[in-house]
Measured scan of single mutants.
Amino acid sequence: KPRTPFTTSQLLALERKFRQKQYLSIAERAEFSSSLNLTETQVKIWFQNRRAKAKR
């Protein structure tokens, strides 16, 4: 499956949310993903990858 090209504004929103909170609840993820026009899976995986990056 092809890589999702996130827009700059989506990335800024994702990073801002990640700084507030590294783990989103299912409800938060649902609301946040629809506000960004992304799927919940895209947001879930982005947060997983971002947490992995933060550990490195």
Rank of each mutant, 00 (worst) to 15 (best):
F47E: 05
L11M: 11
L36R: 04
T8E: 14
K44D: 15
I45V: 13
F32I: 06
E28S: 03
L38Q: 00
Q10Y: 00
K53F: 09
S34R: 12
R19G: 13
S35Y: 08
P5V: 11
Q42K: 06
N37W: 01
K44C: 12
P5S: 11
S35V: 08
L38W: 00
F47A: 04
R51G: 11
Q10G: 05
L36N: 07
F6I: 04
K21A: 13
F18V: 00
K55C: 12
R29M: 15
R16C: 12
T4D: 14
S25W: 02
S33P: 01
L38K: 01
Q22H: 09
L36Q: 04
K17L: 13
I26W: 10
Q20Y: 07
Y23E: 15
F6V: 03
L14D: 00
L24M: 09
F18S: 00
A54I: 10
S33T: 03
Q22G: 08
Y23K: 10
Y23A: 08
E31Y: 03
V43C: 05
R29I: 14
K55I: 11
R51S: 07
T7I: 06
R50A: 14
L12D: 15
A52R: 08
R50W: 03
Y23M: 12
R16Q: 10
Q42I: 06
N49T: 11
K53A: 14
A13Q: 12
R56T: 15
W46R: 02
L11H: 01
T39P: 10
E31W: 14
R19A: 14
P5N: 11
K21L: 04
E31A: 06
I26L: 12
Q20H: 12
A52V: 07
N49D: 15
K53Q: 15
K55N: 14
A13R: 09
A52E: 15
L12A: 14
F47I: 00
Q22F: 08
F47Q: 02
R16P: 01
R16K: 15
F47V: 01
K53N: 15
K55R: 09
N37T: 06
W46K: 03
S35G: 09
S34N: 08
K55W: 07
F32N: 05
N37C: 12
I45Y: 08
R3G: 15
F32E: 01
W46E: 03
L24C: 05
Q10W: 00
P2I: 06
T41F: 12
F32V: 10
Q22A: 12
L36E: 09
F6A: 01
I45F: 10
L38P: 00
R50N: 03
V43R: 00
A13H: 05
